[in-house]
């Protein structure tokens, strides 16, 4: 592949690099093949976690997110990221600061102390959005990049919440991404890899981890995840895919906790779409660090490799 058509500052967040590093490496390599270069965003911090920080003090939340935005503004690059939670913080704060002078002034007053100024010069994208929007990549190019089609694999999709909700505040160029009741755009991306996307009951339900609930009341959070796992496994799927490492943590590590606390097990492999894309483009499970997953991906890998 020649010179990349697009360059983005790659905002990593916490859980992807620190728990599922395969998401990081797969994203960089897979996107490169699709003409998108992801450049490290040096010194980025936690987005910060929208549930935790937003709950404590929204002003801190705005300022901390603005700091990450300024790092990318200094690179003169739009941000790409791989996590719905990060999208909520980084995209939404960018959007709010661009449109509300009072917030922007407050934030800049704080940033002055660290010699920074938020200017509102960049945009923020989720990689799923880049993959789906043919202005950047598009489903056809994704399909064309597949060397190891995931044929025969039945895959359920978990959209998560914070990429697309609340839809009235979002501004996706692809209007179908604003449908938060019955979307199918991720299914299109899954199908592009040669796999079979599978519908299930109450697909748009939350994973249960957000808003600090996973930390505050773990069984409550897990019970929400469990309801989804019941609905998903009813459809006899080989894997669940997501576009949010936090949701992934909730479904992957969460299954172990569900086994411990509720005594039920599913052994359902949970993979970020970047990991699926990596596999479909020929990366090995080892390259993707899939052995770090809480639930073994072996059954799924046997089906697709």
């Amino acid at each position: 592949m020649s010179e990349s058509k697009f360059k983005f500052a790659f905002y990593l967040g916490c859980i992807a690099p620190n728990r599922y590093p395969g998401v990081e490496s797969a994203s960089i390599k897979a996107m490169k093949k699709l003409g998108v270069e992801l450049v490290p965003l040096k010194g980025a911090s936690c987005c910060p976690a929208p549930g935790a920080f937003g709950s404590i003090d929204l002003n801190v939340f705005y300022a901390m997110a603005a700091r990450n935005l300024v790092l990318a503004e200094q690179m003169k690059m739009d941000i790409a990221l791989v996590c719905n939670g990060c999208y909520k913080s980084i995209w939404e704060v960018n959007h709010k600061l661009k449109h509300n002078k009072d917030l922007r002034d407050n934030v800049n007053e704080v940033l002055k102390e660290v010699d920074m100024e938020y200017k509102g010069t960049i945009n923020v994208y989720h990689t799923a959005e880049l993959l789906y929007n043919d202005k950047f990549i598009g489903v056809d190019k994704v399909r064309d990049s597949v060397t190891n089609p995931l044929t025969g694999a039945r895959i359920a999709v978990h959209y998560g919440c914070h990429l697309t909700k609340p839809h009235k505040d979002r501004e996706f160029e692809k209007e179908v991404m604003l449908n938060t009741e019955h979307p199918v755009w991720m299914e299109e991306l899954v199908a592009a890899l040669g796999a079979t996307p599978v519908e299930y009951r109450n697909k748009m339900q939350c994973c249960g981890a957000g808003g600090g609930v996973r930390g505050y009341d773990i069984v409550h959070a897990l019970d929400i995840a469990n309801e989804k796992l019941i609905n998903i496994t009813e459809q006899k799927v080989d894997a669940l895919t997501d576009i949010c490492p936090f949701c992934q943590l909730q479904f992957d590590r969460g299954q172990i906790e569900i086994q411990e606390k509720f005594g039920v097990s599913y052994n359902l492999p949970v993979l970020h779409y970047a990991e699926l894309l990596g596999l479909a483009q020929g990366m090995s499970p080892q390259d993707l660090g899939l052995d770090l997953h809480g639930i073994s991906c072996e059954s799924f890998l046997q089906k697709v490799l």
Binding site: P50, C161, K168, T180, G210, G211
Partner: peptide, 17 residues
């Protein structure tokens, strides 16, 4: 108060916007 997972489903559907 601390049991909201911030899924924004309510916000998506609230008829009063």
């Amino acid at each position: 108060l601390w049991l909201c997972t911030t899924c924004y489903s309510c916000s998506d559907r609230c008829p009063r916007d």
